[in-house]
Write a protein that binds this DNA or RNA. Structure first.
Length: 133
DNA sequence: TGCGGAACGG
DNA sequence: CCGTTCCGCA
Protein backbone atom coordinates (compact mmCIF):
# COMPACT_ATOMS: atom_id res chain seq x y z
CA UNK A 1 0.00 0.00 0.00
CA UNK A 2 2.92 2.26 0.64
CA UNK A 3 4.15 1.77 -2.87
CA UNK A 4 1.86 4.34 -4.42
CA UNK A 5 -0.74 6.94 -3.79
CA UNK A 6 -4.18 5.31 -3.79
CA UNK A 7 -6.13 8.54 -3.72
CA UNK A 8 -3.79 10.42 -5.98
CA UNK A 9 -3.92 10.86 -9.69
CA UNK A 10 -3.42 7.48 -11.28
CA UNK A 11 -0.96 7.53 -14.11
CA UNK A 12 0.49 10.90 -13.34
CA UNK A 13 2.83 9.65 -10.73
CA UNK A 14 6.34 10.92 -10.95
CA UNK A 15 9.34 8.90 -10.04
CA UNK A 16 9.63 8.92 -6.32
CA UNK A 17 12.96 8.61 -4.63
CA UNK A 18 12.39 5.23 -3.05
CA UNK A 19 11.27 3.91 -6.43
CA UNK A 20 14.58 4.94 -7.77
CA UNK A 21 16.52 3.42 -4.89
CA UNK A 22 14.61 0.16 -5.26
CA UNK A 23 15.39 0.07 -8.91
CA UNK A 24 19.07 0.63 -8.33
CA UNK A 25 19.04 -2.13 -5.75
CA UNK A 26 17.40 -4.60 -8.10
CA UNK A 27 20.13 -4.05 -10.64
CA UNK A 28 23.47 -5.74 -10.19
CA UNK A 29 25.21 -3.10 -12.22
CA UNK A 30 24.71 -0.75 -9.30
CA UNK A 31 26.15 -3.07 -6.68
CA UNK A 32 29.17 -0.85 -6.63
CA UNK A 33 27.12 2.15 -5.62
CA UNK A 34 24.24 0.70 -3.63
CA UNK A 35 23.41 -2.80 -2.50
CA UNK A 36 21.39 -4.82 -0.02
CA UNK A 37 23.35 -5.56 3.07
CA UNK A 38 22.53 -6.76 6.52
CA UNK A 39 18.93 -7.41 7.47
CA UNK A 40 15.93 -7.68 5.23
CA UNK A 41 15.34 -4.35 3.58
CA UNK A 42 18.61 -2.93 4.71
CA UNK A 43 20.84 -1.41 2.13
CA UNK A 44 24.10 0.46 2.17
CA UNK A 45 25.03 3.23 -0.15
CA UNK A 46 28.59 2.50 -1.10
CA UNK A 47 28.90 5.49 -3.36
CA UNK A 48 26.61 8.21 -2.03
CA UNK A 49 27.85 10.70 -4.54
CA UNK A 50 27.23 8.32 -7.40
CA UNK A 51 23.72 7.50 -6.25
CA UNK A 52 23.02 11.17 -5.85
CA UNK A 53 24.39 11.82 -9.29
CA UNK A 54 22.23 9.20 -10.93
CA UNK A 55 19.23 10.45 -9.01
CA UNK A 56 20.05 13.93 -10.16
CA UNK A 57 20.08 12.74 -13.72
CA UNK A 58 16.68 11.13 -13.33
CA UNK A 59 15.23 14.27 -11.88
CA UNK A 60 17.17 16.59 -14.15
CA UNK A 61 18.86 18.00 -11.08
CA UNK A 62 22.56 18.22 -11.94
CA UNK A 63 23.34 19.85 -8.62
CA UNK A 64 22.11 16.88 -6.65
CA UNK A 65 24.34 15.34 -4.04
CA UNK A 66 24.07 12.96 -1.12
CA UNK A 67 23.45 15.82 1.26
CA UNK A 68 20.24 16.81 -0.45
CA UNK A 69 19.30 13.26 -1.31
CA UNK A 70 19.63 12.21 2.30
CA UNK A 71 17.47 15.17 3.24
CA UNK A 72 14.67 13.71 1.14
CA UNK A 73 15.41 10.34 2.72
CA UNK A 74 14.98 11.86 6.16
CA UNK A 75 11.54 13.06 5.20
CA UNK A 76 10.75 9.42 4.54
CA UNK A 77 11.32 8.61 8.19
CA UNK A 78 8.06 10.28 9.14
CA UNK A 79 6.32 8.70 6.18
CA UNK A 80 7.37 5.30 7.41
CA UNK A 81 8.90 4.48 4.08
CA UNK A 82 12.50 4.43 5.22
CA UNK A 83 14.44 4.15 8.43
CA UNK A 84 18.00 4.88 9.27
CA UNK A 85 20.18 2.04 10.34
CA UNK A 86 22.21 3.78 12.95
CA UNK A 87 25.77 2.89 13.67
CA UNK A 88 26.44 2.09 10.06
CA UNK A 89 27.44 4.68 7.55
CA UNK A 90 25.19 5.38 4.54
CA UNK A 91 22.97 2.53 5.65
CA UNK A 92 19.20 2.75 5.54
CA UNK A 93 16.40 0.25 5.72
CA UNK A 94 13.21 0.00 3.75
CA UNK A 95 10.10 -0.34 5.81
CA UNK A 96 8.64 -3.49 4.30
CA UNK A 97 6.70 -4.18 7.46
CA UNK A 98 3.35 -3.46 5.88
CA UNK A 99 4.31 -4.04 2.30
CA UNK A 100 3.18 -6.99 0.24
CA UNK A 101 5.70 -6.30 -2.48
CA UNK A 102 6.42 -4.03 -5.34
CA UNK A 103 3.64 -3.12 -7.67
CA UNK A 104 5.64 -0.29 -9.02
CA UNK A 105 6.16 -0.30 -12.77
CA UNK A 106 9.45 -1.74 -13.84
CA UNK A 107 10.68 -0.77 -17.23
CA UNK A 108 13.39 0.69 -19.29
CA UNK A 109 13.72 4.37 -18.77
CA UNK A 110 15.49 6.56 -21.18
CA UNK A 111 17.55 9.38 -19.79
CA UNK A 112 16.18 12.36 -18.04
CA UNK A 113 12.76 12.94 -19.49
CA UNK A 114 11.26 9.96 -17.74
CA UNK A 115 10.37 8.15 -20.93
CA UNK A 116 9.27 4.71 -19.95
CA UNK A 117 8.69 1.67 -22.05
CA UNK A 118 5.45 0.29 -20.71
CA UNK A 119 6.12 -3.25 -19.62
CA UNK A 120 3.10 -5.57 -19.51
CA UNK A 121 3.27 -6.17 -15.78
CA UNK A 122 1.12 -9.25 -15.14
CA UNK A 123 0.99 -8.68 -11.40
CA UNK A 124 -1.39 -5.76 -11.38
CA UNK A 125 -3.92 -7.62 -9.29
CA UNK A 126 -3.61 -5.77 -6.02
CA UNK A 127 -6.60 -4.42 -4.10
CA UNK A 128 -6.13 -0.69 -3.97
CA UNK A 129 -8.94 0.64 -1.81
CA UNK A 130 -7.26 -0.16 1.46
CA UNK A 131 -7.82 2.36 4.18
CA UNK A 132 -4.99 3.30 6.51
CA UNK A 133 -5.98 0.67 9.07
C1' DT B 1 27.85 12.16 9.39
C1' DG B 2 23.40 12.76 10.25
C1' DC B 3 19.37 15.60 11.65
C1' DG B 4 15.57 18.77 11.15
C1' DG B 5 13.44 23.73 10.25
C1' DA B 6 12.26 26.83 6.79
C1' DA B 7 11.33 28.44 2.21
C1' DC B 8 10.34 27.43 -2.50
C1' DG B 9 8.81 25.08 -6.89
C1' DG B 10 6.29 21.44 -9.83
C1' DC C 1 1.83 16.39 -1.63
C1' DC C 2 6.95 15.48 -2.72
C1' DG C 3 11.23 16.80 -3.37
C1' DT C 4 15.06 20.66 -3.69
C1' DT C 5 17.77 24.02 -1.78
C1' DC C 6 20.07 26.14 2.17
C1' DC C 7 21.69 26.27 6.81
C1' DG C 8 22.69 25.68 11.80
C1' DC C 9 23.43 22.13 15.08
C1' DA C 10 25.23 17.92 17.52
Amino acid sequence: DWAYKPESSPGSRQIQLWHFILELLQKEEYQGVIAWQGDYGEFVIKDPDEVARLWGIRKCKPHMNYDKLSRALRYYYNKRILHKTKGKRFTYKFNFSKVVLVNYPLGERDGCGGKWHPLPTPMQAGPRGSGPA
